[in-house]
Amino acid sequence: MRVIDVLYFAWVRERVGLPKERVETEAETVAQLVEELRGREERYALAFSDLSALRVAVDQELTDFDAPLAGAREVAFFPPMTGG
């Protein structure tokens, strides 16, 4: 079991209904964490319904859904970025 801070930004934050939470998880990868979150409640299922519309960062580095969670402290989910 690992404890990870999970952060949500932009419309992902709005759909989930909170900006940040501490999650206890057995997930080994980001994709497994997503599956666990999806199974929680409808609002998570809605936020994670289309992974192609989402980006993920592990410990503040952009990565992909296959990324391992070993040693990770922080995972963030958000839509494609729109800086500039």
Binding site: F9, A10, L62, F78, P80, T82, G84
Partner: peptide, 27 residues
């Protein structure tokens, strides 16, 4: 910084509010 810096824009107008979508052309 358009598509690799974690910023997101939301527009609020008289017609409501919406998140600005990333463009394929930016990628």
């Amino acid at each position: 910084l358009k598509s690799r810096a974690p910023f997101w824009k939301k527009e609020r107008s008289r017609n409501g509010e919406s998140w600005v979508a990333a463009k394929d052309s930016d990628e």
